[in-house]
Every structure is written in C-alpha cells, then in structure tokens.
Amino acid sequence: MKKIFGGPAIFLDRSDINTDEIIPAKYLTEVTKEALKPYCLEDLKLEGFDPQGERLKNACVIISRENFGCGSSREHAPWVFEVNDMHTVIAESYARIFRQNMFNCGMLAIELPKADIDALMALEKEANGAVNVKVNLPDQQVVACGNGREVSFSFDISPFDKALVDAGGWVEYADARY
C-alpha cells in the first residue's frame, strides 16, 4: 500500500539514535505491528523529549542528525513509526539496515546534508516547534513551513529506493520480479 508522506515534524536533535531507543527489546515479543503503537521512542535519551507528549503524537515526519537507526536490525523501529503514521524520516545519514527497512516498508528515509538539517532545526526554534513538512517525491523536494516562512531542499534518492516506495515495499517489488 502506498504511504502518505509529510505533515507536522518532530525534531530529534541528536546523532546515533539507535533502534533500542526507538523501540526497546522488551516489546519485541509482540507479533503484530499495531501492538507496538504506544511505545514509540520510549527509551530515547534526549533532553526535553517526552515520549508521551503531544508533539510526538501529532508528528508525521521525524527530523534528526547522523547515523539514525543504528544498532539492532529490528524492523519494529520503522513499524512503530508506521503505525503512528510517521512515514518519513529526514536525517543527515542512516545506519544501513534501518534505511533499507524503511524503503522495504515503502516509507521514506531522506538524507539531507548537515547545512540543510541545521536550517530545519533553526526553523523549528523560530516556529516554536510548529513546522510542517511537505514531501514531493517525483521532484525530490522537501518543503518545510514554519512561522510563516518556507524553506525548501532537494534530495537524492536511488532509483531502486524510489521503485520500492512506488511499489509499496520490497515484498511487492520482489514478488512481481523474482
């Protein structure tokens, strides 16, 4: 199924956010994605961050720094985002397995250079956290609006990753092809 991208953003201004922080292992006993929903980012170590807060509840886009999603291969990390309607992550860089898991689920792991992430973080401050992000996948553009101001950035996505998103994920793609 194709996903909807974009919406209100939450800013996690830290590098190396690992999948244990995104979804602690004690919840890996669940065998449905839906059951993960209340535990999103529960163990995140980040000052001022509240895993039960409104900001996370309303967010559809996560914006972060380097090496996002490192550590465990658990796809429960993208899933906990998926069931919370957060289909887009924008970060400076990713751990390989997490990035692949996102595209395999038909979701977006967008990479932007540090300067662009800095600009997004600055917009967050200016807008007191109220930043809305639009993702234009065909044109490979991210547009962020906050405090009456708009900033836009273009991003690269490999043709394979794009094909996965278009197909709705790797199972659909592979099933049609192999």
Partner: peptide, 29 residues
C-alpha cells in the same frame, strides 16, 4: 533478521543482518 549476522563473515562469507521484510523475501524468493 539479526544485526550480528556479520559474525559469519569470519568464514570468508558475505553475511548481513537485515530486517523482517528482507528476511521475508529471502524466505520466499
């Protein structure tokens, strides 16, 4: 579906940890 699958590289193999979707396609295809 386990990140420490890299361990098996000790044998001169290419072994990689993957997520559940990659695992699923691996099982099927």
């Amino acid at each position: 579906g386990d990140s420490h699958t890299c361990t098996h590289g000790a044998f001169g193999a290419f072994a990689a940890g993957v997520g559940t979707t990659d695992l699923e396609v691996g099982i099927l295809k």
